[in-house]
């Protein structure tokens, strides 16, 4: 559904048009039917990539195809629904008028348009009184729901959402999460960026992590977290002196707790404990979360 290969994008700013490389050799493949999470810190290149996909930004080099068509071609946007980060709309319209406007632009009219608006509003739990009020009185959460509603009106094959959960309260986040899952069950491919990594972990089939314009990790959540190895936290009955700790084992802060960096370090520690009669009280394995990995990657990029 989305094919990005060796994408480079440079921004030029200031009087001297100083170049800044925003995307460096980005490659991504999103298969039809997937929910694909796109994560990274602010300014990493998430929105830039999304805007390239929607044809809002030109790019320097590389290959970008959306459903087999270049985003430079207007036809590619027939299959896309897009909701930008912090969507802004014509505030002199009501929510319903706005949806009618965008619905007409994707070729809907008459009863079909009204039916589609009702469907989209119900899906996002936005079929409330406020939808007939002017947009200038809307909260951020209401805007976000209207933004996603306009994106799905045309029943797109690919839904691209830039930070769809931002500005939403916990109920709103749940509604959007459920809407994403339901659309996906209906066969819609979803590509979205988010800062809320717990949401990304829970609903994404695959995830790409972008830091400083480069894709640093890509795969399923399990593939990404497994690739970083598993730590073991071991609690013993008696404390082990730091100088006696086997290789790959470190103190965890608590005098009776140590951390083994990998399987081999764990085995060395257990052997040491058996040889020296030290009782093991408990042992937990800890897989790093996406947040841990992202933090590590940001620190690496900064270094």
């Amino acid at each position: 559904m989305i094919q990005i290969e060796h994408l480079h994008k440079t921004y030029r700013s200031g009087f001297l048009m100083k170049p800044k490389l925003a995307l460096k050799d980005v490659s991504l493949h999103v298969e039809p039917g997937q929910i694909y999470g796109f994560i990274g810190p602010n300014g990493a290149g998430k929105s830039t990539t999304i805007k390239v996909l929607t044809g809002l930004l030109n790019f320097d080099s590389g290959k970008v195809l959306v459903n087999g068509i270049s985003p430079r071609d207007v036809k590619s946007r027939r299959f896309i629904g897009y909701s930008p980060e912090q969507p802004y709309f014509y505030d002199y319209l009501t929510g319903r008028e706005l949806l009618q406007f965008y619905g007409k632009l994707v070729g809907l009219e008459g009863n079909l348009l009204n039916e589609r608006i009702t469907w989209a509003l119900q899906l996002l739990h936005a079929d409330k009184d406020w939808i007939d009020r002017r947009l200038r009185s809307y909260s951020k959460g209401m805007m976000q729901r209207v933004g996603i509603a306009q994106a799905i009106l045309g029943k797109p094959k690919l839904l691209i959402l830039d930070e769809p959960m931002s500005g939403l309260d916990p109920m709103g986040r749940r509604d959007v999460r459920e809407a994403i899952l339901e659309l996906n069950r209906d066969g819609v491919t979803i590509f979205y960026s988010s800062h809320l990594l717990s949401d990304v972990e829970s609903i994404s089939h695959r995830v790409a992590m972008i830091v400083d314009g480069r894709i640093v990790r890509e795969g399923t959540v399990d593939e990404i977290t497994d690739s970083c190895g598993i730590e073991y936290h071991v609690r013993t009955r008696t404390a082990i002196a730091a100088k006696d700790l086997p290789e790959g084992v470190a103190l965890a802060g608590h005098p009776q707790e140590v951390i083994c960096a990998d399987d081999a370090a764990r085995d060395r520690l257990l052997r040491y404990c058996l040889d020296n009669g030290i009782a093991v009280e408990k042992m937990d394995h800890k897989r790093p979360s996406l947040e841990d990995i992202l933090t590590e990657e940001i620190a690496r990029a900064d270094a």
Partner: peptide, 14 residues
């Protein structure tokens, strides 16, 4: 400036 252009130009219009 109001960024309404983002949503509008993401529709199939040139």
């Amino acid at each position: 400036q109001r960024r309404t252009v983002l949503t509008l130009l993401s529709k199939p219009i040139s």
